[in-house]
Amino acid sequence: MSAALPSRLAALTRLRCSIFQTSYNPAGIRTGAKYLRARLRGPSVVKYYPQELNLAEIARKYPELEIVDEIEEQRLIDVEEKKKRGKGAPKKAKTKADSRRINRKR
């Protein structure tokens, strides 16, 4: 059995490419085709966490329904109550010195 000539093998590859509609790339040059060939992952990536009902989101989307989120309302009332008793959140620090614990007024 005689070995096939390289030129004959190349011709065979070229013919095969034309038949199966693949690009003839004997030198194996990177064409970046794999980035176009790969499927888009975005749709499945977004679906990872299960969707759940969110009252605040629905209320924001449809303001005409006038949904009242009772838990949120109660929370806001509680915050106001705390502020009245001087138990609110501290003021945001304006300078770097403010954010240091020692300099803060009690």
Binding site: I29, R30, G32, Y35, L40, R41, G42, V45, Y49
Partner: peptide, 26 residues
């Protein structure tokens, strides 16, 4: 992570196009 997932989906096609150009040796 949810934010990242939505960002990935929104920019995926553009990123792929740039990747194709950047990795294309021809």
């Amino acid at each position: 992570d949810i934010k990242a997932r939505h960002g990935v989906q929104a920019n995926e096609v553009a990123r792929r196009a740039y990747l194709f150009v950047a990795r294309n040796e021809t």
